[in-house]
Design a protein around this nucleic acid. Sequence first.
DNA 1: ATGAAAGCGCTAACAT
DNA 2: ATGTTAGCGCTTTCAT
Lengths: 333, 333
Amino acid sequence: MATLKDVARLAGVSVKTVSNVVNGYEFVKPDNRRRVEEALATTGYRPNIGARNLRRGRTGSLALVLPELSIPYFGEMAGLVLEAAGEHEWNVLIEQTLGTRDRERSTLAALGPHMIDAAIVSPEALHARDFDQLDPGIPVVMLGEHSVDVPIDHVGIDNVLAATVATSHLVELGRRRIAAIGAHPYRGTATQRLDGYRAALTAAGLPLRHEYIVQALNYHRRDGADAMAHLLSLPEPPDAVFCFNDLLAIGALRAAAEHGVSVPRDVAVVGFDNNEESAYSMPSLTTIAPDKAAIAHSAVDLIRRRININGGQNLAPEDVQTPFSLEIRESTR
Amino acid sequence: MATLKDVARLAGVSVKTVSNVVNGYEFVKPDNRRRVEEALATTGYRPNIGARNLRRGRTGSLALVLPELSIPYFGEMAGLVLEAAGEHEWNVLIEQTLGTRDRERSTLAALGPHMIDAAIVSPEALHARDFDQLDPGIPVVMLGEHSVDVPIDHVGIDNVLAATVATSHLVELGRRRIAAIGAHPYRGTATQRLDGYRAALTAAGLPLRHEYIVQALNYHRRDGADAMAHLLSLPEPPDAVFCFNDLLAIGALRAAAEHGVSVPRDVAVVGFDNNEESAYSMPSLTTIAPDKAAIAHSAVDLIRRRININGGQNLAPEDVQTPFSLEIRESTR
DNA sequence: ATGAAAGCGCTAACAT
DNA sequence: ATGTTAGCGCTTTCAT
């Protein structure tokens, strides 16, 4: 592997001159430039990014911390973040926490300022003080929700509003016994979506029936199926269900089918996330569709702003709200 | 940010001693060790990985080159590769090619030896000579199939066999008009799966009907739906369909439903990949289930072997076959 | 405009 | 067992 020194020797100039050419410095004698460029070509020189970053004091990488790539929502988000970061020549280091607080904490702690310039974190179980682990010098953007109350940049949709829209849609369908699947003791998104659900029911003058709020400790398809099975076994089963993500909803659809309950005739179902698979489920799923690309771009932009203002340490944390829409499909038609 | 030097000064020892402690070297005077550990703690020292790698002549990163993270199969694989690589303290840089040859080529070319120690590539459209782009010094493992004939390590299941198993399963169900969705002009996996399909039909004494082989230029759900719609419009529609991946199959299920065709009664459907969603589709999908974790681990192991033998340049390329199974679900019951 | 040399933080010889 | 020093490849003063 050719180094600057090799190229310099071959071209008969100093490393400085070669470095100047490589970095597009303007004032290089045309003759020297030519010889350097020749040497560059014949050696096939490629800068050692690690060395450059060591010297420059930056890393050229962002961390993306999320629960699990195999979860469709995060797979889709990760792909978009990769693209957005790539536009600014950042590599992305993806870290999976598997949604456990332990791994979320240790991941945050391991994010030394040497590995990354900034981090995009999608926390699931973190507590506020876990963020002390973080080096204060590196900018962090939270995706998803303010699950904890820390002064950190945040990008995402208005979850309370979105949940209200989803629930109101069911109300407008004429449903009166509307259940919710996905309540969770300390997951921020869950709390907000539950709030939105309650707000919509209250606004419609419908009673809040505690047996219609089903917890889900995880948000996988199986959990949705279990929750739906439980709801259908109630003496008075619901005629509509708002699931806090699409996976729960997909599981709910299956449970409904297995219980001989027709969707949407007997039970209407709404999801959240607009996973690609939701357009192809049977029936296809009405769902809240966040603008994921907007989330990815906003997150990267926020980071760029922070970095350009020298860590932007004493800048007030921002809260960027991205658009969403309600995608109406067969499960509520 | 504390450096080795800072810690050394604080502990009153040389950098060497600190380095020794940090790297778990055994022979350090207990007294010194104690003082170093104290200094380490009070400074909150974290090694600068970049500097360490620069010195050691490695980068600490692997590249994972794949079409798109939002495709469930690749999302799942990426998660597993991340875990497998993490066990050996590798970061993973994921590059999306979006399945275009152009981006696959430029990605290969950009993989300078400074950024990564090795690469795991899941090519879709590459030609053999595109691999010339690659620095010969860095080990590459191909995932998926020998879509091109290059002397490079490869990990994956026996696609021909798997396709035969899938098709034979349909034969054993008593189906006689078995179609295939997913033929593709130059995608390696497609060719192999088509071969397996043909072999199974021939072995069963069934005719190869050219109108039952449907091309799919992409492998998304929509393509499967289109292909199935086409098959069902045939004068003599098939009574079974083997789809070359689960997404195609999911699309096929939907098209069948929309045409009022019952699965599996009228048409049995088999997929390939065992995406998580396939256990929850309606009906759930019979599919070939590759052992994805085995693929991820084998790929990382292969890389470790190559690297330990100094680039292993003159080692013959290996072809590791990982296990798979046929997961029988409702779509063929 | 370009060269010489220092130094980013670390590890590995070499010396003691 | 530990200190000293060179150097990984690069950029950046500081000279010239």
